[in-house]
């Protein structure tokens, strides 16, 4: 058995991680992956709420078979360092759908790290990530997409938006595209902003109290991440989990 190399902030995929929290994990946890295989033509959909009080590493490796579909929706609202890492291998004609929200205040770092291998032709992927933070919290998205030389007609999209509710909070976005095929579409976007004060005042002018206005605006902001989730009850559950993190801190 080879010795496990522990990650440090010098590693590209860990550069925005919480170094102090990394030291608190058992070394073995850096080698723990949950492997999922979606067989050809099948669809899997999973919704996760990560809202524990301890540091957490949630690492998934998903192999999406030919013409299969993997859908993953995650609310990352842990009270401490919480990292959700997803490695996806897409076979021909496969699709990967990801919706992720990091939300929270305090001091914690919450992050999504995705690495998609478009290894075969005709596969598609769509990732929508929203980050909402306050206090001294940090939300990260590191999204790597690798398109192999023969993976023609790949259509990969990733979209990140961060909403900073208070000075002191931060978000980091790191789209990383490595494309060796020539007939592909890879769209990516990253934007970070503040609450729309005009919208807040407009709501107030109609009688909506500030805390309700904030909740409505945050809800609208993160809704994009769950819009591709067909099960409306699950959509509502994730939304409520995310908004619960918002609590009455505002």
């Amino acid at each position: 058995m080879t010795e496990l190399k522990l990650p440090t902030l010098r590693d590209e995929e860990w550069r925005y991680a919480d170094a102090g929290a990394l030291e608190r994990f058992a070394p073995a946890s850096f080698d723990q992956w949950r492997d999922i295989e979606v067989v050809a033509g099948e669809t899997m959909c999973e919704c996760l709420v990560l809202d524990g009080s301890e540091p957490e590493l949630r690492r998934l490796r998903i192999k999406v078979g030919e013409r299969a579909r993997a859908e993953l929706f995650v609310v990352n609202a842990g009270a401490d360092y919480t990292r959700c890492e997803v490695v996806v291998h897409l076979m021909q004609g496969a699709h990967f759908q990801f919706g992720g929200v990091t939300i929270g205040g305090g001091e914690a770092t919450r992050e999504f790290v995705t690495r998609l291998a478009h290894a075969h032709p005709d596969a598609t992927s769509e990732q929508t990530i929203r980050a909402v933070h306050w206090g001294r919290a940090t939300g990260n998205f590191l999204g790597r997409i690798e398109v192999a030389r023969h993976a023609q007609k790949t259509d990969a999209a990733q979209d990140f938006k961060g909403l900073i509710l208070e000075r002191g909070a931060s978000t980091n976005a790191k789209p990383e595209l490595e494309i060796f095929a020539d007939d592909v579409k890879c769209a990516h976007g990253a934007a970070i902003g503040q609450m729309d004060e005009q919208a807040r005042y407009y709501m107030a002018a109609r009688g909506i109290p500030p805390e309700t206005a904030k909740k409505l605006l945050v809800r609208a902001f993160i809704a994009d991440a769950f819009v591709a989730l067909p099960d409306e009850a699950e959509q509502e559950r994730l939304m409520n989990a995310a908004l619960a993190a918002l609590g009455d801190t505002l």
């Binding site: 407009y202 709501m203 109609r206 009688g207 909506i208 409505l216 605006l217 609208a220």
Partner: peptide, 20 residues
């Protein structure tokens, strides 16, 4: 008048009316 993406008029107005 201000645009509010992601919030429907009906949702907005119902919140407003019931808050009032």
């Amino acid at each position: 008048p201000v645009e509010i993406p992601g919030v429907s008029n009906l949702q907005f107005l119902r919140e407003a009316l019931n808050a009032q």
